[in-house]
């Protein structure tokens, strides 16, 4: 609740640099949360169910920079729009994860459920922050797209846990991209460049 308030309600009064400071703190938290949740869920999965298949992530068709040189050459508006598109593309699958977390068979189910709720909440809050940022930067929103998610998590017990884990590994990567793009933007706008 506190985070929601920080990012959405008070952001009108913030300048660009402060707003970027807030959204990058939120994206940092979101990525850390996804890492922790991925590790909780993965702890119970035999390696065979953990084979990485990131090329099958529903966001994999979105072209994003793949190293520093590329990232620093992307115009600011476009970096922001990539971050927003990635996050927007997770609205549906995060809702699926949240629904599915109630049905998981897992010894750490209550921790997983609670972290999945947090993930959902933080993600909405960051989304609201990004909307403000887009508005503030006067950025065009045509470039923002939401990639469709058509999968479900599955009913078989192992398949369900393994798909849950698969979705989390996709989200973990995307939340790292979002966090990295926002931190580049934060340093460009920073009033305290010595902190960067």
């Amino acid at each position: 609740v506190v985070v929601l308030w920080c990012v959405t309600v008070s952001s009108e009064a913030l300048n660009l640099s402060d707003l970027l400071e807030r959204v990058s703190m939120a994206s940092d938290k979101l990525h850390s949360l996804s890492t922790s949740l991925t590790s909780d869920v993965g702890s119970q999965l035999p390696p065979i169910f953990k084979i990485m298949r990131p090329s099958q992530c529903h966001t994999s068709s979105l072209q994003t920079p793949t190293d520093k040189e590329q990232a620093l050459n992307v115009p600011e508006e476009e970096l922001l729009s990539l971050a927003r598109s990635l996050l927007l593309s997770w609205s549906d699958p995060l809702a699926v994860l949240l629904a599915e977390a109630h049905n998981l068979v897992h010894p750490d189910k209550s921790a997983i459920l609670s972290k999945t709720k947090d993930l959902h909440l933080h993600s909405s809050s960051l989304g609201a922050g990004l909307e403000h940022l887009i508005h503030k930067m006067g950025a065009q929103s045509q470039g923002i797209i939401s990639l469709p998610y058509n999968g479900d998590v599955g009913t078989d017990k192992n398949a369900s846990l393994s798909n849950f884990y698969f979705l989390l590994t996709c989200f973990r990567r995307d939340s790292h991209k979002i966090d990295s793009f926002l931190k580049v933007l934060r340093c460009r706008a920073s009033k305290r460049p010595e902190m960067c």
């Binding site: 990232a71 620093l72 580049v184 340093c187 960067c196």
Partner: peptide, 9 residues
Amino acid sequence: ADTRSGWIT
């Protein structure tokens, strides 16, 4: 470490 550009924090 290129912290100045924000590439690494």
